[in-house]
Simulated assay, not measured.
Amino acid sequence: MASEWWEPLRDYCERSGPGLLAEPSNAVSNAAFVIAAILLLRRGRAPDPVADGFAWLIGVIGLGSAVFHTLAVQWAMLADVIPITLFIHAYFFLALRRFLGFSALAALAGTLAFAAAAAFFEPALSRLAGQPFGALSNGSVAYAPAALALFGVGAASWRFGKRDGAALIGIGALFLVSLTARTLDAALCPILPLGTHWLWHLLNACVLYGLVRAARRAGPA
């Protein structure tokens, strides 16, 4: 069983075989997350330890993804997935607090409900369509709940007269573009040997940077 964790993966267009440098664009493009984290940690506003924590997490996302795209084995995938999942759910909690004014208890309940709904989202779509949506979307459907949450919280915040709601909607639109790049990686492989997954990294780093900036502007709940 332990050997399964070391099984090689070839999930992305750019990787044509084993080796640490088999996905140079996908690996190097993770530097965008580290740059985003550094820019967010520069002291230019009042201290915000929560926003700083999210900035550090963005850096961890970049490092974890770089590990995955260099080693490309089963266990390294966890280094990629876990920090991203943590960011999504922690930021949803933060968004409910800072943009919609939820109490901590209500935000926690909302986050748990979101996590449960996200877990059943892809299986429900697959049952309705009669085919695995995850494979059809190159795995991007797993991020659809996060996109819907961005638009939902953004629209609700905008409805309450907060300008940050419009910012969240704009960031959500950019997130859809980045998801498109992730989805098309395999489909465009015959004509683009590098694929488009590296573009997902660059755009998603901008998305996470924008989210933390928006939360910092909104201020503590």
Rank of each mutant, 00 (worst) to 15 (best):
M1Y: 13
A2R: 14
E7G: 06
P8K: 07
C13F: 04
C13V: 12
R15I: 11
S16V: 15
S16G: 14
P18Y: 08
L20K: 10
E23S: 13
P24T: 03
S25H: 14
S29Y: 00
F33N: 05
F33V: 05
F33I: 04
V34S: 10
I35M: 13
I35F: 10
A36T: 05
L41Q: 09
L41H: 06
G44M: 03
D48L: 05
D48N: 10
D48P: 02
V50C: 01
D52H: 07
D52K: 04
F54Y: 15
I58N: 04
I58Q: 06
G59D: 06
I61G: 01
G64T: 05
A66C: 12
V67W: 11
H69M: 04
T70E: 06
L71A: 10
Q74Y: 11
W75F: 11
W75S: 03
W75L: 03
M77P: 00
D80A: 07
V81A: 10
I82V: 15
I82C: 00
P83I: 08
P83K: 10
P83H: 10
T85I: 10
L86R: 04
L86Q: 03
Y91V: 14
Y91N: 07
L94F: 09
A95W: 03
G101P: 14
F102S: 11
A106C: 02
A106P: 00
A107N: 07
A109L: 15
L112Q: 09
A115M: 13
A117S: 09
A118W: 01
A118G: 09
E122Y: 02
A124L: 12
L125R: 07
L125C: 14
S126A: 14
L128S: 04
G130E: 07
Q131L: 14
Q131R: 11
F133I: 12
G134R: 13
G134E: 05
N138E: 03
G139P: 01
S140V: 14
A144I: 08
A144E: 01
P145C: 08
A146Y: 09
L150N: 02
L150P: 03
G152I: 04
G154R: 05
A156Q: 12
S157D: 06
R159S: 11
R159E: 03
F160G: 13
F160M: 13
G161W: 05
K162E: 15
D164W: 12
D164Q: 15
G165S: 07
G165T: 05
A167G: 00
A167T: 10
L168H: 01
V177D: 03
S178Q: 12
T183K: 03
L184S: 05
P190F: 15
P190S: 15
I191T: 15
P193S: 06
G195L: 09
H197I: 11
H197D: 00
W198T: 02
L202T: 14
A205K: 04
A205E: 01
C206V: 12
V207I: 07
L208A: 08
G210A: 06
G210W: 11
L211P: 02
L211S: 02
R213M: 10
A214W: 00
R216I: 08
R217K: 10
A218T: 13
